[in-house]
Design a protein around this nucleic acid. Structure first.
Length: 352
DNA sequence: AATACGATCAACCGCCCTAAA
DNA sequence: CTTTAGGGCGGTTGATCGTAT
């Protein structure tokens, strides 16, 4: 076990791939598919091991790879996914079309970690660093590479030990309220379906993730932030329209439903500092302002167009400023939500 | 211009899981 | 049931590039 037999063979090339090698591999796979990777090098005329060929294909030659820098939306999504999945790069990559686990891992280690620390957030726990420090004597949070979800035992321990603290863990406090999961999400690809075999739309657990996924719908931002400072009196949520909608741009848990932006239609203005987005632009869902939350399964919230959505977003007041200490909006909503979180967390912990 | 240093990224290593023999 | 081989994954390394001194 362990090392592959091919790795023992000498005369195999290692290191960077030449353009000629790339071409051979690309041609072979394009024509024949990869089939058994161990036979690929021989068939393609390469002095490489099958593993090396597989890696080169997956990380570089695959035609569906997205090139270029990560967008702020992608980075935000990675942070959110990492908060739940830990260093499960392949699972995170599965939620970012065109990106590889290696790419994401590199980005995390070289860039995102640093950014989080600069903002006072521990990249391993996704908690404010001060809180992490506070926890150190009691928890082994000093494991630099283990997130709470990085192993079954750790994960379960984490959840069972901290039943009242999930909002924090899942980034639901204002400080960490950074959810961008909706950005590239369809109902199929949203976080609730990301946890293997456990969370599906319509079940209790799904509702929790759905809430997290959607509290900050990804939005196009106004060209400047002035509109985010509208007064509370401008709050226009009660005028939002309701309609049944089956589009995949809506995440539907069978209970609540939230708009999920299509990444291709999500326009972040070039000069806009994504990190300075005001909460009022995020927290505009009825869940937070409470009054329009309905539990009827058939009722969904729909904005007819992105323009309309933007218009409403720009007129929304910041619910955080209305209830600084009631992070989850109305007491009713908060209560339901925290209960869901607790139940979900136990279920999640037990499932891994 | 030369050097040092940090950041980035491609690729390898080693382990685990699973299916087949 | 055990062994073996292949595929997959996360961690790590080392080469390269860009920037500062």
């Amino acid at each position: 076990m362990g090392r592959h037999s091919c790795c023992y063979k000498q005369k195999l090339r290692k290191g960077l791939w030449s353009p000629e090698e790339d071409e051979k591999l690309l041609n072979h796979i394009t024509i024949h598919g990869h089939g058994c990777w161990s036979s690929v090098p021989k068939l393609a005329g390469l002095q490489r091991c099958g593993k090396s060929c597989r890696l080169r294909w997956i990380n570089y030659l695959r035609p569906d790879l997205k090139r270029g820098a990560f967008s702020p939306e992608e980075e935000s999504l990675i942070v959110e996914l990492h908060a739940v999945l830990g260093n499960r790069w392949s699972q995170i990559a599965a939620r970012l079309p065109g990106r590889t686990d290696n790419e994401i891992k590199n980005l995390w280690n070289s860039s995102i970690k640093k950014k989080l620390r600069q903002r006072g957030i521990d990249p391993n726990t996704h908690k404010p660093i001060s809180e992490v420090d506070k926890d150190k004597p009691t928890r082994s949070s000093n494991n630099d590479h283990k997130s709470p979800s990085s192993s079954a035992a750790t994960n379960q321990d984490f959840f069972l030990e901290r039943p009242s603290d999930f909002s924090d863990y899942f980034g639901l406090q204002k400080l960490n309220f950074n959810s961008n999961l909706g950005l590239s999400a369809t109902p199929e690809s949203s976080l609730c379906t990301m946890i293997p075999g456990q969370f599906s739309p319509g079940n209790m657990v799904g509702s929790v993730f759905q809430t997290q996924v959607c509290v900050k719908p990804s939005i196009s931002l106004p060209p400047d932030s002035s509109s985010s400072t509208v007064s509370r009196g401008d709050h226009a949520a009660s005028n939002w329209e309701f309609q049944t909608n089956n589009t995949s741009n809506f995440f539907d848990n069978g209970g609540f439903s939230w708009p999920i932006a299509n990444p291709s239609s999500s326009v972040v203005k070039p000069n806009h500092n994504f990190e300075e987005v005001k909460w009022s632009e995020y927290l505009n869902t009825p869940f937070f302002n409470g009054s329009t939350v309905q539990s009827q399964n058939s009722q969904q919230i729909c904005i007819k167009s992105e323009a309309e959505y933007l218009a409403k977003v720009s007129n929304m007041a910041d619910p955080w400023s209305q209830s600084q200490n009631e992070n989850l909006g109305t007491p009713e909503a908060s209560d339901v939500f925290s209960k869901d979180l607790q139940r979900m967390a136990v279920s999640f912990g037990q499932s891994l």
